[in-house]
Design a protein around this nucleic acid. Structure first.
Lengths: 120, 120
DNA sequence: ACAATCACTAACCTAGTGGTTAGTGATGAA
DNA sequence: TTCATCACTAACCACTAGGTTAGTGATTGT
């Protein structure tokens, strides 16, 4: 995944309207622009602009049938970031969990106790 | 995690300079503004502005000692989004994997055959 | 004591974002 | 056929993002 793709992806996710659009399309795949616009107070052109941003980030995919354009949520970019984060920060997550575990243990009387708690 | 927090978080991650800053602080915790700025061609004030954005998103935490401010990467916001995505999109990830499996199977000669191949 | 260095503010500029209204061509329905 | 509806473009507006330079006050090293 290229740098520019990450820019587009995170920028697309940074707006609450677009996050809500993703929720709507996840729960009701195939919505048209007009049908999607019914869920918002803004103008249809405003909705269209947000859709463009989501398309640029590849977060949605569209199929045109006649005059209608049907929109579908695409999970792939999110999964790519998810996988990347797993690699990049797993060490930190482990460290953080260990830190939480340490603090929990230091609150207890015996330091060696509760070894198996929150093992994830 | 509130909506405004997500806005700030994703907006902060949407710039390559800031993503690189997180990488640097992850690998060398405690860098000062000036030390961080050495890794970039832009002015120190430009770096400071990016640091502000990362602070607003709680992606870094800072400690001031004397005239120097030491910066530390904070994984927590990323982990919160990670956990949220796990809930929100896990169904879609499973569906996507099933779809890939189906397509792999339909490429073979016998549709019912090779049921166990590439089962992941 | 003095000078260099640190974080920082203020002002400015350019380009981009997030919205609007008005209008257009293609398609579908009466 | 006629009319409504769909996606869309163009032009505009206010505001924000991402940079710059110049300058300030506080701390540190010599």
């Amino acid at each position: 995944m290229k740098d520019a793709d990450l820019n587009h992806l995170f920028a697309a996710l940074a707006h609450p309207v677009r996050r809500r659009m993703l929720d709507l399309l996840r729960d009701a795949p195939g919505l048209s622009i007009a049908a999607l616009a019914e869920h918002f107070t803004m103008s249809a052109v405003g909705v269209l602009k947000h859709v463009r941003v989501l398309e640029r980030a590849a977060l949605i995919h569209s199929e045109k049938h006649g005059r209608e354009k049907h929109l579908f949520f695409n999970v792939v970019p999110i999964q790519l970031v998810y996988d990347r984060w797993t690699d990049q920060y797993s060490r930190f997550w482990a460290a953080r969990l260990a830190d939480i575990k340490d603090r929990l243990e230091s609150r207890r009387s015996s330091p060696a106790a509760r070894k198996g708690a929150r093992s994830a």
